[in-house]
Design a protein around this nucleic acid. Structure first.
Lengths: 202, 202, 202, 202
DNA sequence: CATGAATGAGTCTTCATTCAT
DNA sequence: CATGAATGAAGACTCATTCAT
């Protein structure tokens, strides 16, 4: 029995509505380019109402990013190579990638924000985003290192290759966002993994 | 003998100086975050002087991007697989990548701009930048397709793989920019090519 | 037997509670600085409830001042010099001053409001307050004139001296409000009267 | 030869013009009630111009008060009772009072500000003003104490009497400001001193 | 009666751009 | 050519007041 209070539910709905509008506006115009005016116009609410739900422009921005980062973190974890009962590493990796891509690609404005949210005046937000990507890079890096240790992968500059792979992921996300007749997430994941693991040489 | 007029030369110098200052400011703060104040302060010129050389904030931004795109375009061309006298395809590719990376990484502010320049109010500039990346993607795509045709590469979704590779490049550029003790461009190019061509599997 | 209706009594109580909260807030922050939010928070009531009891922010402000002015007016009257049965003029004066000071000083927020309530957007309120002080000044002025007439006081510019004395009163009230270890109202009244009547010269 | 630069002079003039307008507006409406709009309208300048000369609303407010306090401090000093060549204490006191009153009364908006500037959000400004009045009160207090020591004045609660006298001064200033046919500063000073020194009793 | 979510006019402040000197 | 004072549109945010529940 959680929150069946109808007014509480209505409030949550309003909040979601504002978040959705803000996401679109931020995606379209970037943090600085986005105006409260544009957000409230899209959400069909009055100026003051916005500030009833969020304390500032930066706060909505943060809220959106934080939600996304939390959701994505829940989908990403270290790949288990010890548990023999678990799926093979490549399968685990593939599942995580597909899951994350699906989440991101389903919400185009969010994807755009994640890809392009470079410069916030709110240094804090920028830093949090940077740290998020650093986390993912680190996850990839450790996965690579483990792979090398267990003899699955060839030795490499893990830092560098991790950065390259994170870039690859961002690259294909951009493709998925911009292209109208983009391939399915599944296909994308397969091809990308193929490239990452075996390269393009015959 | 073009432009030996000393005053004309001085003017060009001023222009360069403004462009350089603007580049740094744009890199630091993003398009919207950058202020004319910051640019002219850095360039040690008066407010009005700025507008003698550039018609608007957007104009400097465009000018910087255009210059970079022109320079980079000059370094990138289709890889020749017909001329038997030419270097082998992989060598040609490596040369282009090293050349482009060196150009970008040498100028950190420019690199930052290219990587993060997401949002201009000037839709035109955004579009031009998007188109530039589309060009590169296209170049990569054609290279891939040619590679497949001549039996060098395995068949693949060239569009997708091109996007992934452009992403890889951007990923390693970010690494080169942010890291203080980054590896040399040469090392980076080698590792990246290794991954792209052979993957990370043993 | 007026108003024994218990709900009516409850309403009066609410009203008093709001007035008390508002008084504190106005004293702390001044008219403009005071916010409805601060008042209702202090009064532990909802926003809308405030407007059930008072039509506007200006209305509470007015109400507070009006009450204080009414109360004080009841304590101040012309000094009777004809009734031989009455106390001597100086004693009457002292009694009034002590009574008024006690009323004001007992209620520090009110005192602060009376002293500092300079600016209301509601010109009416400002004027009413000004008029109140003018009344007191007038009372003092007439007292002075009567004193001169009956040969008790030396001739003087009654208008000016009345203003000076009102100022004195406000000055000592400020002292009483700000100082933590202030002297008693009685001491203050005595010393002030001494100065006003005999001056500070030996 | 200081600042004969005509443009510099023009700037100083602008600044003065803004200060003058702001003074009037602050006097009319109080700190909170005063709007930048009202100030620039009165000064006949554009919004941005205001911020070219003052960094904020609080800054102009401070500037006005600081100037006044500096000017007044220059007019007030301890009364010399040791130098036999100096004017007698009462004359010194009278001179200072006349000088200060003249300064204040000449500039009615300033006077209004000084009298009513109670509540600023800028706690700093309020404190500075409070401290200024505390200074004056202290000056008066020490004068009283010295007077008692040298046997000129009767013993009294100097703190309290100083507060009363500062109040008197404020009281007569209010009179001088509000009344249209007010007496001259000289008359006012004489009468006030008479009251303070000898009281109103015959 | 009481509530508190919603409103929007109004505030301060910034900053790209212009233009007289 | 160069300057920098002046401009005013536009932005983020506040808060007294209303009204449906």
């Amino acid at each position: 029995m959680v929150n069946v209070d109808p007014s509480e539910r209505a409030k949550q709905e309003r909040r979601r509505q504002i978040l959705a509008s803000a996401k679109v506006v931020f995606a379209d115009a970037g943090y600085h380019g986005a105006s409260i005016h544009a957000i409230i116009e899209r959400a069909q609410i009055a100026r003051g109402t916005f500030y009833l739900y969020f304390s500032s422009k930066a706060a909505v921005f943060d809220s959106i990013l934080d939600q996304a980062m939390t959701d994505l973190r829940a989908k990403l974890r270290r790949i288990d190579v010890t548990d023999t009962a678990a799926a093979p590493p490549q399968v685990q990796l593939r599942e995580q990638i597909v899951s994350a891509l699906e989440y991101i690609v389903r919400d185009r404005p969010l994807a755009t924000m994640l890809i392009t949210a470079g410069h916030t005046p709110d240094a804090e937000a920028t830093e949090r985003l940077d740290q998020f990507f650093a986390e993912i890079r680190d996850l990839l890096k450790r996965a690579l290192e483990t792979g090398v240790e267990i003899g699955l992968l060839r030795p490499c500059n893990s830092e560098l290759v991790a950065a390259a792979m994170l870039g690859m992921i961002r690259g294909v996300i951009e493709l998925l966002i911009h292209q109208t007749d983009a391939p399915t997430v599944d296909e994308v994941a397969s091809e990308m993994l193929m490239v990452a693991l075996r390269g393009v040489l015959k």
